[in-house]
């Protein structure tokens, strides 16, 4: 059935963050990575993170910008979003002043604009910093997007405070970047496998999912699971950072809440960890998420973001192949 009125206005793409492990291992340089993405027909949007891809971070030199634009032309990619960071604590002796924060972020925004990214992902949405940055976003014609990632959601207190700041400033250039990690149906199989690999038995696997599904704040749920492990004589440190990540990186907010900020969505991270044998994404309702964005009239890019590398060893899965499968799935619902 083709219903023209509900046809997707957005475009697909990928963030090179999906290939973090291969990048860190030195299996690819920027050109060979983009070539592989192009060969598989993934795209057309491409997103990068300054702190991951740019050797001269937070600065970007003309040679890199020229290389980036040349590769986009060569492979037919469209720059979608440029991820910036604010390393306010890099100097242990003295945290950044507001002016230093401004300089650190602005240099990344300027570079992103030169690299023809329409959206710059920002990591801090403090009112003073935004007010200083906004005239530059206007001058450079870029939108600024704050990512909403698990454990946050469109209506959690932290995000509500940013929505209020946005309302006060009142600029169409300020928006959000939903990440599907906020709105998962259950804990991902990849994460549960990581727990098993760390030595958790099936009773603990059942328990972690039961605690995860509760509506209590994240820190309480982490505390409850830690208490359970200790009660069984197990050392919570056996899980390394995964114990905390289980709750921080997998949220269970209702996906329909994305509608509450639909008019402010400037970019999207289609997060996933694994594909199921039936062709669906594990633990995230893709038909529903895609439908919400189609019906909401979202018209930016959706970056596929495979984050299985946070739990799975290098080489266990080929992230390029699973991104291709995930994009093919989304196309069915567009």
């Amino acid at each position: 059935m083709t219903d023209v009125a509900t046809k997707a206005k957005f475009k697909l793409g990928v963030t090179l963050y999906s290939f973090s492990a291969e990048w860190a291992a030195g299996q690819y340089d920027l050109e060979s990575m983009l070539a592989r993405v192009g060969e598989l027909g993934i795209g057309p949007g491409v997103e990068i993170m300054a702190s991951q891809t740019v050797r001269t971070y937070p600065y970007t030199d003309d040679a890199f910008i020229k290389q980036w634009l040349g590769l986009c032309d060569k492979y037919g990619f469209e720059p979608s979003a440029y991820g910036t960071n604010l390393d306010m604590g890099r100097n242990r002796a003295k945290e950044m002043s507001l002016d230093e924060e401004f300089d650190f972020v602005l240099t990344q925004i300027e570079a992103g604009a030169k690299m023809r990214f329409p959206v710059i992902k920002i990591q801090s949405a403090g009112s003073e910093l935004l007010t200083k940055l906004l005239p530059h976003a206007e001058r450079l014609n870029v939108k600024l997007g704050y990512e909403i990632h698990a454990p946050e959601g469109p209506n959690t207190p932290k995000i509500m405070a940013i929505r209020e700041t946005y309302d006060k400033i009142g600029s169409p250039l300020l928006g959000f970047v939903p990440d599907f990690s906020s709105t998962m149906s259950n804990m991902g199989r990849t994460m549960l496998q990581a727990f098993r690999d760390k030595g958790l038995d099936e009773a603990a696997i059942v328990k972690v999912q039961e605690v995860w599904a509760k509506d209590t704040p994240v820190f309480e749920r982490i505390g409850e699971f830690v208490a359970y492990l200790e009660g069984r004589g197990l050392d919570p440190n056996m899980l390394g950072p995964f114990g905390r990540m289980a709750f921080n990186m997998n949220g269970h907010i209702n996906p329909l809440e994305w509608n509450d900020i639909m008019h402010q969505i400037v970019h999207v991270h289609a997060k996933f960890f694994d594909m199921n044998p039936d062709g669906q994404v594990d633990a995230i309702d893709y038909p529903l998420h895609t439908k919400i964005l189609v019906e909401g009239g979202y018209d930016g890019y959706i970056s596929s973001e495979w984050e299985g590398h946070a739990f799975a060893d290098l080489g266990v899965m080929d992230p390029f192949i699973v991104v291709k499968q995930q994009q093919d799935l989304m196309k069915k619902y567009m």
């Binding site: 973090s20 860190a24 291992a25 993170m49 702190s51 991951q52 971070y57 890099r90």
Partner: peptide
Amino acid sequence: LTIPWYRSLWVSS
């Protein structure tokens, strides 16, 4: 050493 994180970091990290 490979950096045990998903981005570049300052050595001070």
